[in-house]
């Protein structure tokens, strides 16, 4: 059990590095809240390798630390909304049905974007921002699929290391 701390530490560090890598990639098409969501690959993997409590812990600390390092208070609030909704959806789907890792990742990708928009509508007090939902929904499917594919390839390789 004591081995769990260094393992989760490594995964948290990975998630933070991916946050940084993501901030370097100019993936922006005029839609606020659109993101590649690279760090979600770590969350999905921990969800499958470990249990949901550790995945929740990594997700939360990742948002906080990445926000303080590469963003500001607002980006923490938006990320937290996205991370929370996407995590809840992925957890519920994984607990209730036996789903493929790519399916889980697609749903997570969609709801990460939707969660951010919901926070934006609330924070800006402007319902018209919800007009971005169609574009973000489709973007979420594409990024979620790519992230899922990555997680699917990484899972058998990391399982040997993680469960040793």
């Amino acid at each position: 059990m004591t081995l769990k701390v260094p393992k989760l530490g490594v995964f948290l560090a990975l998630a933070l590095i991916l946050s940084y890598v993501e901030s370097l990639i100019p993936f922006y098409f005029g839609i606020p809240g659109m993101k590649l969501g690279l760090t979600n690959v770590i969350i999905v993997l921990i969800l499958y390798l470990d249990d949901w409590k550790d995945a929740a812990l990594i997700s939360f600390t990742r948002v906080l630390i990445a926000g303080f390092m590469f963003g500001n208070v607002y980006s923490i609030i938006y990320s937290l909304g996205g991370a929370l909704l996407s995590f809840l959806i992925m957890l519920i789907l994984k607990k209730t049905m036996n789903l493929h890792i790519i399916t889980i990742s697609i749903c997570g990708g969609i709801f990460h974007n939707i969660g951010q928009i919901i926070v934006a509508v609330w924070a800006m007090d402007n319902i018209y921002i919800a007009g971005y939902i169609p574009a973000l929904y489709i973007a979420g499917i594409i990024t979620g699929f790519l992230i899922g594919l990555l997680a699917y390839e990484l899972y058998p390789r990391l399982r040997k290391v993680f469960n040793r």
């Binding site: 499958y48 049905m97 036996n98 789903l99 493929h100 890792i101 790519i102 399916t103 699917y152 899972y155 058998p156």
Partner: peptide, 9 residues
């Protein structure tokens, strides 16, 4: 982790 997509997916 399962390898194939099933009905649920």
């Amino acid at each position: 982790m399962k390898k194939k997509f099933t009905m649920a997916d």
